[in-house]
Amino acid sequence: MLDIKNIHASINGKEVLKGLNLTFRPGEVHAIMGPNGSGKSTLAKVVAGHPEYQVTEGEIEYEVNFRKKDLKAMEAYERAREGIFLAFQYPVEVPGVSNIHLLHSAFNMVCKHQGVEEMSQGEFRKFIEKKCEMLELKPQFLDRSVNEGFSGGEKKKNEILQMAVLNPRVAVLDETDSGLDIDALKIVAGGINRLKNQENCIVLITHYQRLLQYVVPDYVHILSDGKIIKTGDKALALKLEEEGYDWLIKS
């Protein structure tokens, strides 16, 4: 459903992605691993449509209901409404905007765009409180300002809550495991597993193997210097954990 072909992307004139190829199909879980500075977060931002990243070469083809779309031609919000989701490594604070207001507005916007019936405030509250239970978040959490004063764990859980609300087709989770203690990691992983289905594709960008113990990937890709240098299954992640990246990069 998402076909990334020979993507070159730069920020402030510096090329970060240098001919990257990846294909994501429905029902799959992908893990993208790689050393610091290899281009993992850039890939996430390019897929989501960050305006500061320039795609200088290559294609990103997005297929929905047998219709192909050129993702590059769409703005970030259009991609979001079409089912592309990015969970941020560092979720941004939006002071004064309550979490439930953001979630409800976003939900209705996506519903409207996709031709699905919108939800009233009351209905939405019930719907979202169930999702909160899944992530062991108290209902009061919904009335706080978006990410303001949240703990690291709460911020990451909130990203998954937003994912649950937006119900994306392609979800790119950028280092969602970083900064989580083991309990929070298990809860977040549980949430991701619940949201995983045959219609969507989950892309886990991570530096470590530990999240992959709980959310088992079908494919593990190694990104280095802006390119995928190796693809394997979950065993590859384990090998990386033990031996580091050196053996791959040197060879």
Binding site: A48, A76, Y77, A80, V92, V94, S105, M109, Q162
Partner: peptide, 9 residues
């Protein structure tokens, strides 16, 4: 950008 990725123009 954060809000745009949540569907806001």
């Amino acid at each position: 950008f954060y809000l745009q990725t949540r569907g806001f123009s």
